[in-house]
Design a binder for these strands. Sequence first.
DNA 1: TAATATAATTAGAATAATTCTAAATTTTTA
DNA 2: TAAAAATTTAGAATTATTCTAATTATATTA
Lengths: 128, 128
Amino acid sequence: MTKNAEQILKIINGSCEHLSAEQIFLRLKEYNQSVVLATVYNNLASLYNEGLVRKISVEGYPDRYDNVRRHDHLICKGCGKLSDIVLEDLTQSLQNQLKIPMLSYDLKINYFCEDCIKKQQGLTNDND
Amino acid sequence: MTKNAEQILKIINGSCEHLSAEQIFLRLKEYNQSVVLATVYNNLASLYNEGLVRKISVEGYPDRYDNVRRHDHLICKGCGKLSDIVLEDLTQSLQNQLKIPMLSYDLKINYFCEDCIKKQQGLTNDND
DNA sequence: TAATATAATTAGAATAATTCTAAATTTTTA
DNA sequence: TAAAAATTTAGAATTATTCTAATTATATTA
């Protein structure tokens, strides 16, 4: 594993945010001035293929990268905010329902975050 | 609802595939020669905002559109093939675990489809 | 029905995320 | 150290999607 790859993995594993390739690039730059965005994409692809990071796709936003510790995701339908949540592990229950072997599962919970609820209420009140 | 929107909804609801905007555009063209891709995007955005269609994001592939009948998705990690599966409804169980109100959830099961397993086995055997 | 307003569609440019290509550099191996 | 392999760089290319402004269609009202 190269220094860049190692550092990228550290950035992902050490952050509780969900960083885009661009954001990871900016942080990697603090450590390696001369690095380039394509390098970040290259390394992220390798790390992803080796199963060392996860990739989270939410429509309307660039892919974000996350650690592989078991957890689920909350997605605000208002602002796209993505946060972690640890819910009951469904592996066994899902595998029992499937005829084929499952590799893993991704569970996303759609909701409205506090800020977006406030904004909605604000709008509603204005119109009353 | 305009004729285009109506027809797009028909295409999505009447297909067991998961069509991209481009694919929907091609089918809509059979019905309305003069239609343009931007119109499809416009209408898909409206239908999505009205909650009449779902949007499925899988990293590495363009967004695909799906009907809103309750079901989950299988995603082949080899070829990206997306298929429907109806698993136990988790709404109640998930809502019980959450402190906040949930809008909906998306569950994706990662697996290797038959074709991809065959290909892998082919490769493995070649190397044996 | 004519005039007006509203909404949808079109054409095509713009943007943003990501991938690709080819050259340069670094690392590893013989 | 020479050769081979892998990584990185720079920047062009691609792709999906959005935006803009003009045009057309639809609905509303006088």
